[in-house]
């Protein structure tokens, strides 16, 4: 099998010179060592943005207008 997440990658298959897996990996981080706090931060920011936009759309754009002719 030439690729697929279901198989372990062997070092000899990662020899494409511009493949970050070959040139840029500083340390391998396993499942138990990885704590995605950056993801939590980004998703929190996203949630705050859409919550604000929702409130704005409902109270300003929707309730702030008269009946709509669609």
């Amino acid at each position: 099998m030439s690729s697929g997440t279901e198989h372990e990658a062997s070092p000899d298959t990662l020899d494409e010179p511009d493949d970050v897996w070959e040139v840029d990996i500083e340390k391998q981080i396993g499942h138990d060592e990885y704590d995605p706090v950056g993801t939590l931060s980004l998703i929190t920011v996203y949630f705050l943005i859409i919550a604000f936009l929702w409130v704005f759309m409902y109270f300003v754009e929707f309730l702030g207008r008269g009946p709509t002719v669609v």
């Binding site: 840029d24 340390k27 981080i29 990885y34 706090v37 950056g38 993801t39 931060s41 980004l42």
Partner: peptide
Amino acid sequence: TAFTVVASIEHGARQRGGSGYFRWLTDLP
């Protein structure tokens, strides 16, 4: 998907030396 994909990308950034809550974004290709 938003969670899984961002977490997978962040994993890449941290394997390439990224750190912090947002600074790891600069360690992406």
